[in-house]
Write a protein that binds this DNA or RNA. Structure first.
Lengths: 335, 335
DNA sequence: GCTGCTGATGCACGCGTGTGCAATGCTTCA
DNA sequence: TGAAGCATTGCACACGCGTGCATCAGCAGC
């Protein structure tokens, strides 16, 4: 008993072929750009397809080519401004290229994102973009072996044939240090979270290194999640110690720091305290804050990700580093 | 020439069967819960699969069952806090149920999201969640006809067998009006954006209706995108007219309004001006704002969405309305 | 020893699509 | 007119998997 196209279920190319009075091949070719079909047959097929509401089954299509248009995107803390911006830009760019964005939320994936990557392999994804979590080398190698491109955003993995995109943590941290020093701050601190991602750790390290060149050593806060609340907690602990200049490795942390310093501890910014952030999320530019920060070039990052996915050649041996830009606002003093 | 499992490409169940010395059926049954396989064969198969790095092909799996585990999620302005929260919660909930979240960014889809839904149909998605845009009735009906569940979040479509989830715009708008009146505000305004979604339009309407019961008529602002900047622009225009109480249909708008009123126009909140928002995004609770707002129960919305996807029975005739909660903070005066 | 039953296993088919190959018909050129 | 070339079309196979059906071995009960 054949499926009844009227009653329910999806219409297949065989249904269309029957109605149009042609072979199934003709239907397939009609929807395949560059295939050889006469204008007359094409018209009949299109009419029949339209009448029946035919939609090509991409699952079957992917089965043939043994590769889908799916791109797995692994991310976490998607509700936070920076990650949300990243995802919005990336999903938009992928769609523009005809790629499907399969979103994998790593929030509940304690410890390892390996199961998420495995799921993408099962879907024969064309590529996997890692925006969060540190994938074990083994699983990345399995992806590469199977022809699934892996793009690591801010998450370097050693000795693996995957595209890696980094931002200029070094230049950013140095600029932050230089600006705070130029503002006359001498009692400095750097605020990060307990979850030390490679990028955040580098920002701390380069900031400290730069200060060490001036024989200064900042207080270091590295507890709690990467959140507004962590910034507030850090301010509560550090400001009473006389800190007059802070580099927060994330804008979100910086905003929490500013709020607690001002509204809880009565400090004036930038008169009593200078604050520098990192990322340039929209809230940093809001009038209540005016946070001086290091802007990440997210469009550039997105372009690199898409280029890595579409490139045919193997990934370059070296990571791409995207520059950051200092955006001066009211949370720091003019020189 | 058969594929060489060592060299490249994905391992198939036939490869595993060959190595384990069993039939391909045995491999399939090993990975099918509840199927009949002896412990000895299962062990051999698992060993072979592990040695070869076998991963079941979900594309082929979906082809068999003619239904995938994919859930299409249509959203726009994903970088904005509220939408980002929605997406974060939904993607997490879907993953917990073993469903895949296929993200469709509607930002570049001017006018119609129909092409996006069509793409989901081609992937034989199990369900489609519309968080943004107004799908034409015709395409929704096609989804339903093909057994693809459609869940409309805040986007009612008339006369269609789809689950619809609304929030209590009426109760929220009334609570906002009542609170502003109780605070002694008499020169009121309601601020929205130019892109009138059904939900936002209802908030305006019910707010006006409530005030009309007190013989009051608010100024209405409805221009620009639903953004922080729109709130600032509205403040610039409305505050000089003597407005002393504002209902912003979105927190993001409210924060822009507050910032301009305070830092640009020198008004004190709540002494000179009371502001009520809607949504309760994280920023509303930040110390710099303390925005009184109507909290949406996003976890409840998410639960309803997931329930609608998993339900076997046809969707209920009536929309589900999720209540909102008044969260009082410093942007309004105590009675 | 024979029958009936149960669990394990393999064969073969179908899911919906793309495509190589051969056959067919038409056009063009000598 | 005949041959060659080209565009078009259908047949048949392959993609990787799940599963109904038949087969078979093992075992209990008579």
């Amino acid at each position: 008993m054949r499926r009844d196209a009227i009653t329910s279920g999806f219409v297949t190319s065989a249904d269309v072929a029957r109605l149009a009075g042609v072979s199934r091949s003709a239907v397939s070719r009609t929807f395949t750009p560059g295939a050889s079909v006469s204008a007359e047959v094409r018209a009949r097929v299109l009419a029949a397809a339209d009448a029946l509401g035919y939609r090509v089954n991409r699952l079957a299509q992917g089965l043939i080519s043994s590769r889908s248009n799916l791109v797995g995107v692994v991310g976490a803390r998607l509700a936070q401004p920076f990650q949300a911006m990243q995802l919005a830009l990336l999903s938009s760019a992928l769609m523009a290229r005809g790629l499907q964005c399969l979103l994998l939320n790593a929030d509940d994936a304690d410890q390892s994102i390996t199961p998420l990557i495995e799921r993408m392999l099962e879907f024969r994804a064309r590529a996997i973009v890692i925006m969060s979590g540190s994938p074990p080398t083994a699983i990345v190698e399995e992806c590469v072996r199977n022809g699934v491109r892996v793009v690591l955003v801010y998450k370097p993995v050693e000795g693996v044939a995957a595209d890696t995109i980094l931002c200029d943590d070094e230049g950013g941290a140095r600029a932050a240090a230089d600006l705070l020093l130029a503002s006359g701050c001498r009692s400095l601190a750097v605020v990060s979270s307990g979850g030390q991602t490679p990028s955040l750790a580098r920002r701390i390290a380069f900031f400290r290194e730069r200060l060490a060149g001036h024989d200064l050593s900042p207080l270091v806060w590295a507890e709690g999640p990467t959140s507004y609340e962590t910034g507030a907690a850090a301010a509560q602990a550090l400001v009473p110690q006389g800190v007059d200049g802070v580099f927060c490795v994330t804008d979100l942390i910086a905003l929490g720091f500013m709020d607690r310093a001002r509204h809880g501890l009565g400090r004036r910014i930038p008169q009593d305290l200078c604050v520098v952030g990192f990322d340039d999320i929209p809230q940093a530019g809001w009038a209540a804050y005016g946070l001086t920060t290091l802007r990440q070039d997210l469009p550039a990052v997105t372009r690199h990700v898409v280029a890595a996915i579409e490139r045919e050649a193997p990934p370059p041996a070296e990571a791409v580093t995207v520059p950051v830009t200092l955006v001066r606002r009211g949370s720091t003093r003019a020189d």
